[in-house]
Design a protein around this nucleic acid. Sequence first.
DNA 1: GTGAAAGCGCTAACAG
DNA 2: CTGTTAGCGCTTTCAC
Lengths: 351, 351
Amino acid sequence: MTVPLFVLRFNNTIINNKEVNCMSTNITIKDVAKQAGVSEATVSRALNDSPQVKRDTRQKIQNIARNLGYRPNGLARSIRVQKSHTLGMIIPDILNGFFTQLSRAIEDTASQAGYDVLIVNTDEHLSKEAKAINLMLEKQVDGLIITSAGNSTDYPKMLGNTPAVFVDRMPPADVVSQYDRVLVDNAQGTQAIINCLISRGAQRIGIINSSVSATAKERLQGYHQALAAAGLPTDPAIEATARTDGSNVPQMTRQLLVNQKCDALFAADNTIMTGVLTKLPELQLPAFQLGAFDDNDWFDFLPQPIVTAKQPIAELGRIAVERVLARAADHQLATQEFRLPAEIIPRPDNA
Amino acid sequence: MTVPLFVLRFNNTIINNKEVNCMSTNITIKDVAKQAGVSEATVSRALNDSPQVKRDTRQKIQNIARNLGYRPNGLARSIRVQKSHTLGMIIPDILNGFFTQLSRAIEDTASQAGYDVLIVNTDEHLSKEAKAINLMLEKQVDGLIITSAGNSTDYPKMLGNTPAVFVDRMPPADVVSQYDRVLVDNAQGTQAIINCLISRGAQRIGIINSSVSATAKERLQGYHQALAAAGLPTDPAIEATARTDGSNVPQMTRQLLVNQKCDALFAADNTIMTGVLTKLPELQLPAFQLGAFDDNDWFDFLPQPIVTAKQPIAELGRIAVERVLARAADHQLATQEFRLPAEIIPRPDNA
DNA sequence: GTGAAAGCGCTAACAG
DNA sequence: CTGTTAGCGCTTTCAC
């Protein structure tokens, strides 16, 4: 065949006496059309398996495209059809197993619906989050799934009318009603953990709470409810709050377990519990119990059992995707809040 | 102001007697131009901070853009300038801490260079990897960083002339020279671990090797070298290989530690070690040692210490990004292999 | 300094 | 069944 050779030549250039691939001379639909002796429109149709085009033509075109190494330009397509078939996902900490599991769940559901997912990590920085949202919008995502890094962002202004749903963390109170929310029942989960600790004899349970305000409020509430129900007193001296980066957690662990003589400690999330565990070895302690919101597989391997509340991550992800797609299809949809129960893992008693 | 009102009206429509935002009537450069009474070209220049445009005009335009909530369409821009300023990253397991750390390192370096990163997870499936690569290419990434899910993919055909570098895992042997590779020194790392175990008295060290062939080969080699250097015999009966999904690891753990009476066990990666730990509690064993390639923070919390080889993840990521960008700038660059040493964490002896 | 016009690669009317 | 044409939103010559 001579024509392909011609195309090759056309796409190549001579440097230093050696024929080499030219940088970004990508094969376009036009090249395929030229080759096949048909119009660009027909190529487009054939490549999209349109039933309109004759079988022979279609197959011929598809062959030529393959041989030429043709790659559709998704950007051009998206810009033309005004749809990217892509969702954006903003997570605050890619090193945290909870969020990676969540992103996997979201990717699963999305891909079943024919959508791709872009993930960006914000490291809990508001400025990075703002950049991430901007990036997503510029890439024209069809919807956004956000685990918010903080309260100060003006989401309605940032997001415009891009469909968005908040997962795991509430949007700021003043705009909460403008967005779908998919969350675990923080109060219920915490209460169940504390109940479990109490049923096993705990009398003085310290808490190191989350730095995420709405979440922290609910978890504290669950903690108080459980204490009240058991007739145990609350004590502000054993209620601490972690910094976002968790840097103060080891010191608080010592404070609660040693100075305040707590006989149990509740860590309000994954990261906080890790901070607690870091400190434990150097503390000489009588028997005590541990509880935490969020579960990790490796908690099973620890000598000291941890009672945890495991979030229904797959469900959270599935609902989030469904909602954002539903909203993309109908921007008028009323916003809604979804609350899913956490599952208690009562180590060491679970079979 | 009346003009903004007009624009608003233009972008809205009446449904059910309520004025609502119309779906995707996005503000474009044209709208800004109309508002400002200048040409689209000038708006473009102003928005890109071109020094050509008069300060007053520029600021006026930028104000109008902000007020209108204008968002540049990144796709349109990329298609026009033939560059997306985006890198693609393909990872085989987003639940594995090694890869999340790697992706974070890559994102860091890339963002410093002004590039965004798209991450896609393949779950170790070749078919998903192929889809992921396709997705990236369609999104016109300027380069690809790949941790390969397997050997059977025809990368040159898939990738065309998109710059690509392989991290952590080798590309298939027949095409290896066509790509940059950034890897840890698997033999050295493994050898050092085994040496450490031997120096602490191990005489019969079992290995559960990786399912990734090139990596497995190198790690096995390091294992053999260490044994040979210590004058210890090798024994095929205590050399096992994990399945990709790790499902056979618990059973092998039992086989090596109980049936084969090994006094030490080396797990060739992160995931394998987790499988081992799952099995240990139910085994009644005399004292034994544990070693593993790849480190996890939570290994510190385990009662049974693990000697690990920690990869220089930040470095791996940095080099990968630098190479892919260098290649994007000059496609003629000779390919290269980078080997970085692993750091041994000799638990429990590390201060 | 600014505008007019062309075009990146693709798809969707509208013809025929 | 296929071709022609227009245009998505943006940048970039080339004029003025």
